[in-house]
Design a binder for these strands. Structure first.
Length: 282
DNA sequence: AGTCCTTTGAAGAAG
DNA sequence: CTTCTTCAAAGGACT
């Protein structure tokens, strides 16, 4: 009943990434319907590691594959995500953890349940009817190699083009040094889009179990975290990140949270020569 | 105009 | 405690 946001975070927060006010609001456009709900800002869920990874790499994949369909792009990104090394994934897990922390600080009373029912769930019922071979009306596209063959697939997008439009893409720089190099191997494969390789066969194995539950307590003193087992430091990062000290008010309006987070995070990683793999730098 | 598709991860709900 | 469900991004395709 008590909305925690309306009072604490007036319109001035419309620049917040967690608030739905910009183009991408919910899906396409909430529409004039139900204005009541539209008035109050829709606090979005913080992005998880994979979502952060997608935001960064989407433009790159789009440029490489000349694909635009998000469904196909996401499939490619999903494969690439698995191709990333643990260290590379760790960057995104850490970013996601920080996002969750900040989100909790900004909206202490917010719960993921608040957004339940905001979007109509499709709930594709099993699809036992349609076999994988039976191509559904929506033909799945493959990732065309594209690539001028002469140019390396290094970063067609990050070089000049598509990165311009998205303001949240400064993070793209983060991904550049982490070129997983499986790119070509990914594209080489026909990328069976029709049937997911194993679906969710691989259990929710957490590459970083510590990170998984680390956010349960963090340093925030808001929710009653039962475990609260000291600050579980990420297994890879050697230095503490002065991020928790960030206050919403400290975040300058023009620069969205992502930028701050990524910048601080990126700076952290940059301080170390070659990603965290080489912990011998120090 | 609204929903689906598609991915992984987080978190709540239900059993 | 385990399993299931929903939502986060995103943009073409579809209804």
């Amino acid at each position: 009943m008590t909305q925690v946001f309306d009072d604490r975070f007036p319109e001035s927060f419309d620049s917040e990434p967690f608030l739905t006010n910009r183009r991408t609001s919910q899906r396409k456009s909430p529409g004039p319907a139900k204005k009541e709900e539209d008035k109050r800002p829709h606090i979005k869920k913080p992005l998880n590691a994979f979502m952060l990874y997608m935001k960064e790499m989407r433009a790159k994949v789009v440029a490489e594959c000349t694909l635009k369909e998000s469904a196909a792009i996401n499939q490619i990104l999903g494969r690439r995500w698995h191709s990333l090394s643990r260290e590379e994934q760790a960057k995104y897990y850490e970013l996601a953890r920080k996002e969750r922390q900040l989100h909790q600080q900004l909206y202490p009373g917010w719960s993921a349940r608040d957004n339940y029912g905001k979007r109509k769930k499709r709930k594709r019922d099993n699809k036992t009817d349609s076999k994988p071979e039976d191509f559904s009306p929506r033909n799945k596209k493959q990732c065309m190699p594209y690539l001028p063959q002469d140019k390396t697939i290094d970063s067609p997008a990050s070089s000049h083009g598509s990165m311009l439009d998205s303001p949240a893409t400064p993070s793209a720089a983060l991904a550049s040094p982490a070129a997983p190099a499986p790119t070509h191997s990914e594209q080489a494969q026909p990328l069976s889009l029709t049937t997911k390789p194993e679906g969710r066969a691989h259990p929710p194995h957490h590459p970083f179990p510590l990170l998984a539950k680390a956010s349960s307590s963090s340093s925030s003193s808001s929710s009653s975290s039962s475990s609260s087992s000291s600050q579980t430091t990420p297994p890879i990062l050697s230095r503490p990140i002065p991020f928790t000290s960030l206050h919403p008010s400290l975040l300058s309006p023009p620069s969205p949270f992502h930028q701050a987070a990524l910048h601080s995070h990126h700076a952290l990683f940059q301080s170390q020569p070659l990603s965290l793999v080489t912990k011998s730098a120090d």
